[in-house]
Simulated scan of single mutants.
Amino acid sequence: MNTAIERDTNIDANEIVESSTRHLSRKFAGIYDEAYIRPIVVESYKSFASAKIQTFVAVFTTRFAEDRLRALAKIDGKIRNTMPSVLFVCVHNAGRSQMAAGWVRHLAQDRVEVYSGGSDPGREVNGAAIEAMNEVGIDISNEFPKPFVTEIVQAADAVITMGCGDTCPIFPGKRYEDWALEDPAGLGVEAVRPIRDEIRRRVVELLNDLGIETK
Rank of each mutant, 00 (worst) to 15 (best):
W103A: 05
A101H: 07
N126H: 11
S141M: 12
T82L: 13
G95Y: 02
L72D: 04
D76I: 01
P84N: 01
L87I: 04
G137D: 12
A108I: 11
T82A: 14
R105P: 02
A132H: 06
I79D: 05
C90T: 02
A73F: 07
E151I: 12
S116I: 02
N134M: 08
M99A: 09
L87A: 04
F88T: 08
E113L: 14
R111N: 15
V86G: 06
S119Q: 07
R123V: 13
P147N: 13
N142W: 07
A132Q: 03
Q109V: 15
V86Y: 07
S116H: 10
I79C: 06
E131Q: 09
G102I: 00
R105T: 04
E143H: 15
G127L: 11
G118R: 00
C90N: 02
E124M: 14
V153H: 10
S141K: 11
L87K: 02
L87D: 01
P84A: 00
V114Q: 04
N142P: 01
T82H: 11
G102C: 00
N142F: 08
V91R: 08
A101T: 03
S119E: 07
I140S: 05
N81S: 15
A94Y: 01
E113P: 00
V114M: 05
I152H: 06
S116T: 06
G118Q: 01
V112C: 01
A132C: 09
K146D: 11
S141G: 15
V104F: 08
N93G: 03
T150N: 13
N93I: 01
H106F: 11
V86I: 15
G122R: 02
A108H: 12
E151D: 14
A101M: 10
N81D: 15
Y115D: 04
M133F: 05
E124D: 14
N126G: 11
F88W: 09
N126Y: 03
G102T: 00
